[in-house]
């Protein structure tokens, strides 16, 4: 059933699709992190309204399907604001707005996960403040934040498949195109699925390594 020569001739297109998938995920992740930092600042603001906005935003993002969020940004936003977005821009924006809510939570949890004893121990040793920040707090922060951020990125790679619905030609959309041109759905979707699996599984194995690195391990 599975035609190997088909697979080989079309592989470059799939690889391009995978590159787009990774590209939009990375763009969404980066912008999402920036938005998340903004959310964190707002959440600690003294203005109650700002805190409320963050809470409602987070709840909305977590409580509605990404597909609906994308459709809103792509189809409803132009009607509301008059701004027309290209599918690619709308897609990346949706991924950013979506991941920001989750990334903000990761960052917050990471910040609060450092026990106060660490600060106390550092003070007891009379370490200067910048040394404390650089040598004591930052490494722990990085260690606490990297694993959840890495898994957030894999979630984003999976989520990016939904951009195919607004015709961003990423990996899943590539598979659809190939299917329509060749009438070979089995090969088209199996290839796409396999590429996703290879990317995500290797990435998750790598992430697990990070998580299991014992706290005292040399870096």
């Amino acid at each position: 059933m599975f035609d190997m020569s088909f697979f080989l001739t079309l592989l470059p297109r799939f690889i391009w699709g995978a590159a787009v998938t990774l590209g939009v995920s990375l763009a969404g992740f980066t912008l999402g992190t920036v938005i998340a930092l903004g959310l964190l600042l707002l959440a600690r603001s003294r203005i109650a309204l700002a805190r409320w906005i963050v809470a409602i935003y987070t709840s909305f993002i977590r409580g509605t399907p990404l597909l609906v969020q994308i459709l809103v940004i792509y189809y409803a936003l132009p009607g509301l604001t008059g701004i027309e977005l290209s599918p690619l821009v709308a897609g990346v924006l949706s991924l950013s707005f979506n991941s920001a809510a989750f990334i903000a939570e990761n960052l917050r949890a990471g910040l609060f996960s450092i026990p106060s004893g660490q600060f106390e121990a550092a003070s007891a040793l009379a370490l200067p403040r910048h040394i404390v920040a650089l040598k004591v707090i930052l490494p722990q922060l990085v260690r606490n934040i990297i694993p959840p951020m890495a898994s957030e990125f894999t979630i984003l790679v999976k989520a990016s498949a939904i951009l195919s619905v607004i015709s961003v030609v990423e990996l899943t959309r590539t598979a659809q195109h190939v299917m329509m041109e060749t009438f070979r759905p089995t090969e088209a979707f199996c290839t796409a699925a396999l590429i996703y699996f290879l990317i995500l599984f290797t990435f998750s194995v790598f992430t697990k390594r990070l998580e299991h690195k014992p706290s005292g391990a040399p870096r």
Partner: peptide, 11 residues
């Protein structure tokens, strides 16, 4: 767990 749901649905 390592293939997007949409891709699974199409598949």
């Amino acid at each position: 767990r390592n293939i997007p749901f949409l891709t699974q649905v199409f598949l």
